[in-house]
Write a protein that binds this DNA or RNA. Sequence first.
RNA 1: GCACCGUUAGCUCAGUCGGUCAGAGCGGCGUCCUCUUAAGUCGAUGGUCCUCGGUUCGAGUCCGAGACGGUGUACCA
Length: 821
Amino acid sequence: MTQEDASYDIEATQQKWRKVWDGLDTFVADESSGREKRYALTMFPYPSGDLHMGHAEVTALHDVIARYWWQRGYEVLNPMGWDSFGLPAENAAIKNDEHPATYTYANIETQFASFKNYGLSFDWTRRLHTSDPEYYRWTQWLFLKFRERGLAYRKNSPVNWCPNDQTVLANEQVVDGKCERCGAEVTKRELTQWYFKITEYAQELVDDLDVLAPTWPERVITAQRNWIGRSEGAHVDFAVEGRDQPMTVYTTRPDTLFGTTFMVVAPDAALAAELVTDEQRPAYDTYLQQVRKESEIERMSTDRPKTGVFLGVHAINPATGARIPVWAADYVLAEYGTGAIMAVPSGDHRDWEFAKKFDLPIVPTVQVPDDWEGEAYNGEGPAINSANDEISLNGMAVAEAKRAITAWLEEKGLGKGAVNFRLRDWLLSRQRYWGVPIPVIHCEKCGEVDVPEDQLPVELPELRGADLKPKGVSPLAAAEEWVNVDCPQCGGPAKRDSDTMDTFVDSSWYMFRYCSPTDATQAFDPVLVNSWMPCDIYVGGVEHAVLHLLYARFFTKVLADMGMLDFREPFASQLNQGIVINQGKKMSKSLGNGVSLGDQLADFGVDAVRLTLVFAGPPEDDIDWADMSPGGSVRFLQRAWRLSGDVTSAPGTQAADGDVALRRVTHRTVRDAEELVEGYRFNVMVARVMELVNATRKAIDSGCGPADPAVREAVEAVSILLSLVAPYTAEEMWERLGNQPSVARAGWPKVDEALLVQDSVVAVVQVQGKVKARLDVSPAISEGDLEAAAMADPAIVKALDGKQVRKVIVRAPKLVNIVAG
RNA sequence: GCACCGUUAGCUCAGUCGGUCAGAGCGGCGUCCUCUUAAGUCGAUGGUCCUCGGUUCGAGUCCGAGACGGUGUACCA
């Protein structure tokens, strides 16, 4: 065997097939094919630099599913595009004195070429970029539609401010008190900003998680549930001495009302400043200053001691009539609930700590179990100390007591059962340039006026370099010719809104646009969208568990309510891939442990890199590239390819008369591969293909020989199975077998069920749990026959010699266990 | 602190209903081939299935406790 016969030239093969594929349009989705539709979506990238190992992994995994569906005979929509608005382009533009579009579109072209080289089955006729005016025109249109429905509004409130990026952030973009993007410590500012009213959909967003739970990763479901933070409880009014208005609190434990011994107000809530007496005002002001200076990070740490200040006023516990002091303390948050709480130190560890520190009374209202040790008790138990002239909760369990006290409060007009959410409205304004301009004009006379639909898109003015430097207000505000316009309503002087939208708005609806990407008359074609969607699979990183996925779900529900969609969840199932790390650590410039995708592809070829990533382990696990052996993948692929040269039967040869043993392996492998791909267990699927390759090799060299029809069947199956992971090698094999390209659309091998059934199985006979004999039996053998056969076996007779048979366990057709002694 | 997940060969992982169940691939080692340094062949090696206890005729598999590792989350009333 010469060198040329033993291996193929990876680089030449890649170049050859790229050219052939370009002429085939193999993966262009055709709505009119009449085939059942599938929509495979993977999160589109931000165009920063070239593709890296992370992109390589997620697209390789995603491609297995898309290609599998094509092979199974579905019409597959598998689009790709770019989430191309965003800060990195703007920062690069400032640094290099250029336009953000220059950086953005250059990177897009680089990534596009890399994707093509990487052999993915994307339908490139549907490519989109969110920064194209043809796209963001419809982002603006959707904004106006949301505004029409009262779901986009402006309000003044304290917002998260990133001092580094000089822009506001959504709550979802603040992680541990830091900017999710750049890591700078987030501060608060009072600003008037645009919001989407996502809270209006809070209940549905949490309810539908139950629908998604079977097909979405558990951790995403959990993350969203926690983020939405639904809780049930009650609002309770407390009269305040010397004040007409009561103060209202939200509590999840109204049953502990009798144990409320003081009240706490968030120091930065308006209510605190209102309630404080003149006498206590200096102390309060000092405290407030101190709290304001704390960073979010300090404030969020849970193990620091409680602080607070008495406001000088008293409230009345509506259940006991007791006078209880009202305090301000920073462990109560202004933004959650009503910004004030009823403190029950016996039942809440925070209140307990506070009461201990400031020597406030503690009244237990739930009987603690005998064996319980601790401080505040928030578990189950009968109520105690909870009675007045009108009502007694004593003896009731927690749930019952909640109902009873809530009913009593409602009857007295002192409270009401309530549901509360942690979720806040989505702050969407950004004070930066490279995003979608908000299509609103501010007129002194008319107020906020929509840009008329026929004037969309509101295009970005041409700004570059230093014009884009962060100044705390949007760079657009300084573009005078752009900003100053006539009011569309009254014609008077007016100004455009100079903020741009959060880029998460762009990505909240792109999955719809892919269905009719060039439609110039509407955001998307509802008929096409409803025919393709919801997406059958959405592959992407778990870092979007709350942000993007929550927003996209919200948009879908709003659009459904607008009558444009006949479904209410965009992604029927989801797969989160892990990340590629190196030597146990995340790849980073500072660690110098980055692995260049380009280098890996040059060294091992596309197929071997893809195979390595897919075979590395379960898709959701991280891959440590240092533990991987792409060289091993190269050798395996060459070994598989070599099979295709050994086949001597002609194309079209019927396999029916072929070697049965090999055929069983082939058909078993194909069937298992179906289940494994559908269960996203691609690594195991690859292992099975490796075994099939080994079995085929053995059949050729020392079994039925290369001319046997079963060999062709096996090698064709290998080629088709490999086409999901290693398209170049598979194509090369397919051609070498004498078939026409492309193997990607060859169709899935048909499994002969008869070959999956064994005509005899091996039954094990155990004595005392130890295997003493093996019998070839029919799979249909009865328990009686199996037992008789076992007892008659010479080895068993010998093993039982002189022993008393106490018990015989028969599990036909696999096992007989004889207990003797 | 709480919740969830995991622990099987050097590495990455399979192991379905409790019974052929101690497995695959890779790596490493050795062998052979007109002999290497991304070629091929053949072969052998390699495991306290994290620990302890329980259920069972039988436990990698089920149950309990613990250890270790990981992930998420954390003053949300």
